[in-house]
Amino acid sequence: MSTSTEATAAAATQAAIGAYAQALDTGRTDDLAELFWPDGVAEIAGIGTFEGQEAIRKGYEAFAPTQPQLHLVANTVVTAVTEDEATAVSDLAYFQRGEAGWAVRMVGRYDDTLTRRDGVWRFQKRVTTFQP
């Protein structure tokens, strides 16, 4: 595999991860669902597993933000790349703004599989887990 293929997959992975956090924090569930393939899966520990774009959109609508929030994603490592698939792991910190200001509400991890179809990269599966 070429360095160019690896760089393209890594850039597409980073772009999808950033777009997901932005859409999640602003309650744009349609945009968030579009980041997944029609047969994509979003699995969130303690909340549920949503299969397909419509289920993902509806699932995320159930916890759309009611006050300012921010997901900071860091330490993303692309762990494997092929021509049409990339896997990555990332750390996350979830902040919410209340009367006392911003506070960390939880930390966790994303385990992602993205696939490329017709030159487009999207999430095939995203597993979200939280640290106690």
Rank of each mutant, 00 (worst) to 15 (best):
A93E: 10
W102G: 00
T113A: 12
V107W: 02
D112N: 09
L92P: 03
R97A: 10
D91I: 04
T87W: 08
V107F: 11
A100D: 14
D111R: 15
L114N: 03
G101M: 03
R105W: 05
Y94R: 10
T115Q: 13
V107N: 11
F95M: 13
A100E: 12
L92W: 05
T87R: 15
A103S: 15
D112Q: 04
L92D: 00
D91C: 07
D112G: 01
V107Q: 13
Y94V: 07
D111I: 05
D111Y: 07
T113F: 12
V89E: 14
V104A: 12
G101A: 06
G98R: 06
M106H: 05
L92F: 15
G101T: 06
V107L: 13
T113R: 15
Y110A: 06
S90C: 09
A103G: 11
M106S: 15
T87E: 13
D91A: 12
R109I: 00
T87G: 04
G108R: 09
M106K: 11
V104C: 13
G101S: 07
W102K: 06
Q96M: 13
Y110M: 06
D112F: 03
A88C: 08
T115G: 04
W102I: 01
A100H: 13
Y94D: 08
G98F: 03
Q96V: 14
V107G: 10
R97C: 11
M106C: 12
A100P: 01
G101N: 07
V89M: 06
G108W: 12
E99S: 14
T87N: 08
A93Y: 01
Q96I: 10
L114I: 05
A100K: 14
L92Q: 06
Y94F: 15
A103C: 00
T87P: 05
R109W: 08
A88Y: 07
A93H: 05
G108T: 04
D111G: 09
G108A: 08
T113K: 13
T115C: 08
S90E: 11
E99F: 09
T115S: 09
A88P: 12
F95E: 01
A93S: 12
